[in-house]
């Protein structure tokens, strides 16, 4: 029996493959409308006001009981800081990247850390670390392949991902884009760790078998993710890797990146995934929409199913939907705690 842990201790123990008092419950992005309103934050200011950001996201920890506090809200920060066009969405729609570069030479990251959204994220990490030292402060970052897709356009990435496997010249083109993304990843990772992030959570949505072939994932994405992951470890920080879609065909590759834990979505057969990943912890894979319209029974069933199948932590299959309700999020956290009380 493990004595009671703080949220931060619980998450770090899970990442370190050590026993926990209960399985951690974690989130990816957390732009929840109810919490935005409850904290008195306003759209779109909470994207560039560190205090508003922390006041909103911390409610996932203090009100709902999740173990991590995740900043920022969406996957647009890197692109905005590079000068790409971003549509800011609405209070219930996350910002989205609307433009891309035509060649790698156009990508300029000299003043990356001076961008207002980057600065807000770094300030919010510092602030949440001060205010909530017992929570696992998690920086939500865009991983190399997805960032490459943002730089060159997701459709172009998908097409180049197959061409580069066939022709050396195309592979060189891919590497030219990817090296830009990795350089930006390094700059941002270092700044986040310096600001006090306990964990870096990388989403590589565009490395999904939904968009690129598993062959590309193994040949190009794994080395890139490993490169940034090794860099993060060198900074003394653990990291998580999330990829969307049915990732069973690439789980072995994901596990080989050195990520301290893998996050998967509801399309994944958790039992099969945990078997393939071996001792690399997998977290997941509750359907996000259940937080918007799921019944208590559905939320409890899915939470328990994931944990019964070998998940080491409960997480939604993707970010927390903006229209999630706090009572459903609390039901999810309780379901994981109840499962732990019976099984740990």
């Amino acid at each position: 029996m493990v004595s009671e842990m703080t949220s931060k201790e619980r998450v770090l123990a899970m990442l370190d493959r050590k026993p926990v008092d209960r399985v951690p419950v974690m989130t990816g992005s957390a732009m929840v409308k109810e919490y935005i309103e409850k904290s008195g934050s306003s759209w779109p200011d909470y994207h560039c006001d560190a205090e508003m950001m922390v006041n909103t996201v911390s409610l996932m920890h203090t009100d709902a009981g999740l173990d991590n506090i995740v900043l920022p809200f969406g996957m647009f920060i890197e692109s905005a800081a590079l000068g790409l066009e971003v549509k800011m969405g609405r209070i219930d729609i996350q910002p989205s990247v609307r433009s891309f570069f035509s060649k790698p030479e156009e990508v300029n990251y000299d003043n990356f850390l001076e961008n207002k959204y980057v600065k807000t994220t770094l300030e919010a990490i510092k602030l949440s670390k001060e205010k909530y030292p017992d929570a696992a402060i998690t920086a939500f970052l865009v991983a190399p392949i997805t960032l490459t897709g943002d730089l060159m356009g997701a459709e172009n990435l998908s097409m180049l991902s197959i061409k580069c496997l066939q022709k050396e010249k195309q592979m060189q083109k891919m590497q030219d884009w990817l090296s830009k993304a990795l350089e930006i990843n390094r700059i941002y990772a270092e700044a986040c760790v310096e600001a006090g992030a306990d964990i870096l959570y990388y989403s590589d949505a565009s490395a999904s078998p939904n968009l690129v072939m598993p062959e590309f994932y193994y040949q190009v994405a794994v080395p890139a993710e490993k490169e940034i992951g090794d860099f993060v470890h060198h900074l003394g920080c653990p990291w998580e890797l999330h990829i969307c879609g049915d990732t069973v065909p690439i789980i072995e590759g994901m596990a080989s990146t050195g990520a301290d834990c893998l996050s998967v979505e509801q399309a994944v057969n958790m039992k099969e995934a945990t078997k393939i990943a071996g001792d690399v912890p997998i977290v997941g894979n509750v359907t996000p929409l259940l937080m918007v319209e799921g019944t208590e029974e559905q939320i409890i069933d899915e939470t328990r199913k994931g944990l019964d199948s070998g998940a080491k932590g409960s997480m939604l299959g993707c970010g927390t939907p903006p229209l999630s309700t706090s009572d459903r999020i609390r039901t999810w956290v309780k379901a994981a705690a109840d499962w732990s009380a019976e099984n740990l």
Binding site: S158, I162, K163, V212
Partner: peptide, 10 residues
């Protein structure tokens, strides 16, 4: 896979 559909489409 999707990339194959995309290059076929192009």
């Amino acid at each position: 896979f999707v990339p194959q559909l995309l290059i076929a489409s192009a």
